Structures are given as structure tokens and as C-alpha cells.
Amino acid sequence: MNGHLSNHIMYADDLVLISSSSAGLCQLLHECEKYGMSHDVKYNAKKSAVMIFRSATLKGCSIPECKLKWVTLHVVTTYRYLGNYISDDLSDDNDTNRQCRTLYVQGNIILRKFSMCSLEVKLTLFRLYCSPMYGVQLWWNYKKYPLNILHIAYHNILKLFIGMSKYESTSLLCTPFDVQCCQSVIRNMAYIFMCRLDISVNCILNDILTSGLIFTSRIRKHWNRLLYVNT
């Protein structure tokens, strides 16, 4: 991108290698092995995996085995990286389900521990621990059904905090209690993320932004559909 090669991404002890071919990936793994031997760095091959993003013409093609320290890496269709589920078909449905489960877990834990608190305290806890849904700003390729299930989970948890039955209408639920609805949370997080991208000094992000790829990408078009309305 922009004349710069970005074939590895590192965050703490998590490392991602990116290659457009299996031969290139094997070469990158070999470089990691050499670096590990010279710098006394150990890689856990059992916690490593290979994911293939195939084009339509390569759906049935197999690739040679990729090995790290003589251990063959498993080829996976879904993998959890930095808390988000990534799928080889670029679908966000698995991560939507992950967020739905997280909402129920967080909501039930808070209700169990703070059941005797006032409504104001409960709503504050809901805004702090249930409204910021991790990773939703990265979703763009999902089916309506998993997203609807997430909306239902969000508003059901809110009803439990308020003391309403889950069967009551949600249309007038959020405004009186000054709580964002689920759709508003997703739009707000997407907007904040877009603003952070525009001012980021990260070299990889700058390569994407200055190359113009971001304006033709499907995720950018999805953000525009979330935030802007044609009249």
C-alpha cells in the first residue's frame, strides 16, 4: 500500500502474518523461526492457525502445509483475535453472537451484585458496562437475524435493569431514562472510530487512508449508510 509492504501486524504478544500466497506465508514463518532462535523467542504453534481468504475462483483449491517449528498449523475458518471473531468468508455473524452472549453475561453479573442499588446506579452501570459494545464498529457483513437478536438482548437487559417485563414494548424505553438504543450505540461507535482513523499517526493506517482504498472499501460504505441519510 502506497509502496510500503505491510505483511505483519504485532500487538503485545499477538502476531499476524499476511501473505498473498502460501509460499510467501511459509517464508514469513521461516523468518519467524530464525528470529526466535537468534533472540530466544518461543512461538506457541498449538495456539497458532492459518486462515485463507479465498477468491471465488480458488474455493476448491488446496494449499501446502504451513509449519512453525516443525508443527503443522491448522487451517481454520473462524479465529478469535484481540477479542473479535474473524471468519474466512468475512462474515461478522460469529462476532455478533459473541457480543450477544457478552451482553447477557455482563448484565446478569451486574444485576446479581447490585440488585439492591437504586435505579440511577443501575442505569449508570448499564451505560458503563453494557452500552460500549466492543468491536461493533468493525461490523459490516452480517445477516439481519443475528443483529436483531443482539438488539433484543440489549433491550431485554435494559428492561431487567429498569424492572420492566421483557414482553413490554421497547419503543419508548431508552429516551425517558437517557440511555442509547442499540442502533444508536452502533452508529456512535462507528462515528468515533472514523474520527480516530482520520487523525491517527499509525503508519499502516496512514498508508490505507492516503492510498484512497478506504473510500472504496465496503466497510467505509457501510459506515456511510449508518451515518448519512439521502434525502
Results as ranks from 00 to 15, higher is better:
Val76Ala: 05
Ser55Trp: 04
Cys174Lys: 02
Ile18Ser: 08
Asp14Ala: 05
Ile208Thr: 03
Lys42Ser: 12
Thr77Pro: 02
Glu120Asp: 15
Asp13Lys: 05
His30Lys: 11
Arg187Cys: 13
His74Ser: 12
Leu17His: 08
Asn230Phe: 10
Cys117Asp: 13
Ala153Glu: 13
Lys59Ser: 13
His155Leu: 11
Asp198Phe: 04
Val121Arg: 14
Lys42Asn: 12
Ser87Val: 01
Trp70Gly: 00
Met1Phe: 11
Val121Leu: 14
Phe215Val: 07
Ser131Thr: 15
Ile157His: 04
Arg196Phe: 03
Leu213Asn: 03
Asn148Tyr: 08
Gln99Leu: 06
Leu82Gly: 03
Val185Ile: 12
Ala56Gly: 07
Met37Leu: 11
Thr78His: 06
Ser55Phe: 06
Lys67Val: 05
Lys221His: 15
Leu28Asp: 08
Arg187Gly: 00
Leu68Gly: 00
Leu172Glu: 13
Val121Trp: 13
Trp70Ala: 06
Tyr228Pro: 02
Asn230His: 14
Leu15Tyr: 09
Asp13Leu: 10
Tyr85Met: 02
Ile192Phe: 07
Ile208Leu: 08
Asp95Ile: 01
Thr210Ala: 07
Trp70Glu: 09
Ile208Pro: 00
Thr231Lys: 10
Gly212Asp: 04
Ile110Val: 15
Val76Gly: 04
Tyr43Asp: 00
Ile214Lys: 01
Asn156Pro: 01
Asn148Asp: 15
Phe53Pro: 02
Tyr167Met: 09
Phe114Trp: 14
Asn141Val: 04
Asn84Ile: 11
Phe126His: 06
Thr175Asn: 03
Asp92Asn: 12
Leu160Ser: 09
Tyr134Asp: 12
Ile199Ser: 11
Cys182Gln: 02
Ser38Cys: 12
Ile149Pro: 01
Asp178Trp: 04
Leu147Glu: 03
Ser38Glu: 15
Gln27Ser: 14
Asp178Gly: 03
Ile199His: 07
Leu28Tyr: 06
Lys143Trp: 13
Leu226Asp: 04
His222Phe: 14
Gln137Cys: 10
Tyr134Ala: 08
Ser91Val: 03
Leu125Tyr: 12
Pro176His: 05
Tyr35Val: 05
Val105Pro: 01
His222Pro: 09
Ala153Cys: 12
Asp13Val: 11
Ser115Gly: 11
Tyr191Asp: 05
Arg80Phe: 03
Gln180Met: 13
Asn156Arg: 08
Trp140Ser: 12
Ile214Ala: 05
Lys59Leu: 15
Val121Pro: 05
Ser211Ala: 08
Val136Gly: 02
Asn97Val: 04
Trp140Met: 04
Phe114Thr: 09
Met194Cys: 06
Ile219Arg: 01
Gln180Pro: 01
Ser19Cys: 14
Ala12Met: 14
Ile157Pro: 01
Met10Ala: 13
Tyr134Gly: 03
Phe53Gln: 07
Ile86Glu: 00
Arg101Gly: 11
Val136Pro: 03
His151Leu: 07
Asp198Ile: 02
Val121Phe: 15
Leu58Gly: 03
Asn206Phe: 01
Lys67Cys: 10
Glu168Leu: 08
Asn224Met: 11
Leu103Val: 09
Asn230Trp: 09
Arg101Pro: 05
His30Arg: 12
Thr124Glu: 14
Phe53Tyr: 15
Tyr85Phe: 14
Thr57Pro: 00
Leu172His: 14
